[in-house]
């Protein structure tokens, strides 16, 4: 199955997108498409403009100019609809630590307007898959970090969004957990959920179908990991990343 088919309608359409804060240009003329079911990696140095771009695409921030369409909704006038059709998970905040696992599920399901019947069905299914059935009434705060992350990801896709945004989702976990976490991501992608992910782990960039690299507010490279490695004559994405940063200087 080829997940990157340019004939398909993009799920995220970005054209000449600009965001300025006063005279500071955080995002300068971004143009790219993301296709349904794709794992799209969004990389860049700290301060390159990634977070601002993600905030616009998630409907949290109004662009200064340019075109933006997410899941068929306009990035200026339909930002509430965009929010309903996406999922979001970040390393910093995803779950309420002082609520139980089940209370967190109820809260998320409630926010996204999922009916009681569907919620109950999906809750059992999800807890079984994560092997957390016994722990459903435990406080999230007491769970190991790896479990929290898997739970947070499962909740971010609980309402089966068209796109899920993962902002450095795997920071700080052990290598085993990091890999089982990517198994979940791959599975979701195969169910047709588009994955938009940022990471500082360059081996994880290899797991993406395509990768965009940002530098100083601009997209400086966008292609499959294999094509980027060939173009920059590097044997890993780490090498690509370093070469792009050096060229800039």
């Amino acid at each position: 199955m080829d997940r990157i088919n340019p004939e398909r309608t993009p799920i995220i359409k970005v054209e000449n997108l600009v965001k300025k804060f006063g005279s500071f240009v955080a995002d300068d003329n971004l143009t790219f498409n993301v296709y349904p079911g794709e794992i799209f990696g969004f990389l860049g140095a700290n301060g390159a403009g990634k977070t601002t771009a993600i905030r616009m695409i998630c409907g949290l921030l109004e662009p200064t100019s340019g075109r933006l369409e997410v899941a068929g909704y306009d990035g200026y006038h339909e930002r509430e609809k965009i929010k309903r059709n996406i999922g979001y998970m970040s390393q910093k905040f995803s779950l309420y630590e002082d609520l139980t696992i089940y209370e967190n599920i109820r809260l998320f399901a409630g926010i996204y307007g999922i009916s009681r019947k569907v919620r109950l069905e999906k809750t059992d299914e999800m807890l079984k898959k994560l092997q957390l059935e016994e722990s459903r009434n435990k406080l999230v705060g007491g769970l190991p970090l790896g479990w929290k992350q898997k739970l947070a990801f499962s909740l971010a896709i609980f309402h089966h969004p068209k796109v899920v945004f993962l902002d450095e989702p795997s920071g700080g976990v052990d290598p085993l957990t990091r890999r089982t976490f990517w198994d979940l991501i791959n599975e979701a992608a195969h169910q047709g959920i588009t994955i938009f992910v940022t990471t500082h782990y360059m081996d994880e960039a290899e797991y993406c179908d395509r990768v965009a690299i940002m530098s100083e507010g601009k997209i400086v490279a966008l292609d499959t990991p294999a094509a980027l490695k060939a173009k920059y004559q590097a044997d890993s994405m780490d090498g690509v990343f370093l070469k792009i940063a050096r060229n800039k200087e």
Binding site: G44, N46, A48, E168, G171, H200, D238, F241, A245
Partner: peptide, 10 residues
């Protein structure tokens, strides 16, 4: 180096 990009880490 946690949360720091690959270039700054190097």
């Amino acid at each position: 180096t946690t949360g720091v990009d690959a270039v700054s880490r190097k």
